[in-house]
Design a protein around this nucleic acid. Structure first.
Lengths: 329, 329
DNA sequence: CTGAAAGCGCTAACAG
DNA sequence: CTGTTAGCGCTTTCAG
């Protein structure tokens, strides 16, 4: 029945004061006799003592906990992001507290409140809301925050994102090259989601001086977007579909397949994100490949910088993605 | 400059003792005047006070933290598992600490040590090691543990897993029906991973009284398993490939595609796990569909039971999966 | 209906 | 080189 072994029992057993044990724990050997050191080390070993992080955290003002708030945890983008973050913190003294917003603003907020009462030391946030005021809570508590994938505006915290605008410019070029005359953009609601906005605006800029027309279908807003989309596909003009995220891309592919719409003959398709399956289906799908693991790593690193310096100017880091050209456009 | 608002400042501002505030926080209104209650509520509201979890945890013996140790966080099975777990704990007072073992036994162990020093209240573990002695640490500390996906043997803790053996029996039936004469099982090392063992043994049992022969290729052990596999595929006997996990399944499909081996004409293919793309490639892939989200939910629920009762007999819960019959076998 | 006081496990002056 | 003391923010007797 191993009673809870605390710093006190170590002190008693080793016949020193708990101060000395505490010093030992924190590597303050400046002036400690080899003998005492040895005795304490032994006792700790024997009794298999682990200092209580709660108590340490209570004294120090920090919890050594890093919070990660993601939009949707069951999502390949997210899981690769988390891999990058976890890897980074593995060899630090920090622990990572991951919370799933499940695409619900209320739930995200409740998660952040929980993080605050954990006295979390820093947060990596994939924000569900565009207005920074929504996150006043974090501003008030002066918690270091780094955003990933998306950012709030006006600018408040550093952000690590894909080069969305830039890459959409490339997509536009591709579409122009291939002589498409009309583009239908498909996305979940784009307002307030900076990554989607940037993808949209990039494409728009890219075709600015052409005759190519753009239509936007925000699929959550439209009763039956599938039928709408199908009805728009005809042979009058050469059309390209641009899906602003992976989920939408694959829904489209599945839809077209089901209705025997031939890609790219009847309609061209390009989109986010590149998936391991993109080259296994036919036609192989042309898609933009992001690097979420690197985004996570860099975000973690930025957060550490901020937590150390305490005084960093917010900056945006853009991680390059790649357009994987295949057969669907 | 919002100074740290503690229970003391609430007490002072509301002109009561911290005892009373504490009672309020813990919902002990048994005998509290409406007026005091109201006043405290107001003060907390005004000062935007959040009790410190550290301090609460220090007093209580528990941290209100649940640890989740997964084999590999960047993996669709895992992310759906985590969704189930996160969902469950969302409306409890517990927080979830997710740690990625990255398929490294050393890293998993280091994670568990960290969890122990967090005085974590319970752990959901997807074990990398089959021998429970490896987890002596957790046994010593008497931490409630529920295993997911796999389990250690001999039996130590409850486990929530897929009905692997059962489903492999079904796979065997299917293979028999289709008149296959030989089965090649492909997997990462199966020793010590109960889910893979059960899939293997289920298939073996299923073909026991037939002439069907079985070969096992453990791909991490073989220099160039791709060539080995290709060399085994000939037209002498009708062969089926059975991939014991998703990653392997898709590697095989990609390999066969690349070498123009026709499925199911040259060789039949079936495997774990069913993925959203299984019906988008041609031929559509026959695969076993697990329910990791449900596994996560049930595991979380079991853990709660154990943490409450303090005295539960370990049990194994098998969550049904489904064989999705398509065209590849 | 409410408060005073002790103490959870640890750290950090300060004092020898 | 080491110990005494106070206190982090909270909960919980015990006493009124």
């Amino acid at each position: 029945m191993s009673k809870k072994v605390t710093i006190n029992v170590i002190a008693e057993t080793a016949r020193v004061s708990k101060t000395t044990v505490s010093r030992f724990l924190n590597g303050k050997f400046d002036n400690m006799s080899e003998e005492t050191k040895e005795r304490i080390a032994q006792t700790i070993e024997n009794l298999d003592y682990h200092p209580s992080r709660q108590a340490q955290a209570l004294k120090a003002k920090n919890s050594l906990l890093i919070g990660v708030s993601v939009a949707d945890i069951s999502n390949t983008y997210t899981s690769r992001l988390l891999k990058g973050i976890s890897d980074y913190f593995q060899n630090t003294i920090y622990q990572v507290l991951i919370m799933d917003g499940d695409n619900s603003i209320a739930r995200e907020y409740s998660n952040l409140e929980k993080m605050v009462s954990e006295k979390i030391d820093g947060i990596i946030l994939q924000p569900l809301v565009h207005q920074p005021e929504h996150y006043q809570l974090l501003i008030d508590e002066k918690i270091p925050v780094v955003q990933v994938d998306r950012y709030t505006e006006p600018f408040t915290w550093s952000a690590v994102v894909s080069d969305n605008f830039q890459k959409s410019l490339e997509v536009a070029e591709l579409i122009i090259d291939k002589k498409y005359e009309e583009i239908i953009i498909l996305a979940n609601h784009i307002n307030g989601v900076s990554s989607r906005m940037n993808r949209y605006n990039g494409l728009k800029s890219g075709v600015e001086n052409t005759n190519i027309s753009i239509k936007l279908i925000e699929i959550d807003d439209i009763e039956n977007w599938q039928n709408l989309l199908l009805s728009m596909i005809d042979s009058k003009t050469k059309k390209a579909l641009y899906a602003l995220n992976g989920q939408v891309l694959w829904e489209i592919i599945r839809l077209l397949k089901k209705h025997n719409v031939s890609i790219p003959d009847d309609v061209g398709v390009i989109g986010y994100d590149d998936d391991m399956f993109a080259d296994m289906i036919s036609p192989e799908i042309t898609a933009v490949s992001q690097n979420p693991q690197e985004i996570g790593r860099i975000a973690a690193d930025n957060l550490m910088q901020i937590m150390d310096n305490h005084t960093t100017v917010p900056k945006t880091t853009r991680i390059p993605s790649t357009v994987q050209i295949r057969e669907s456009l």
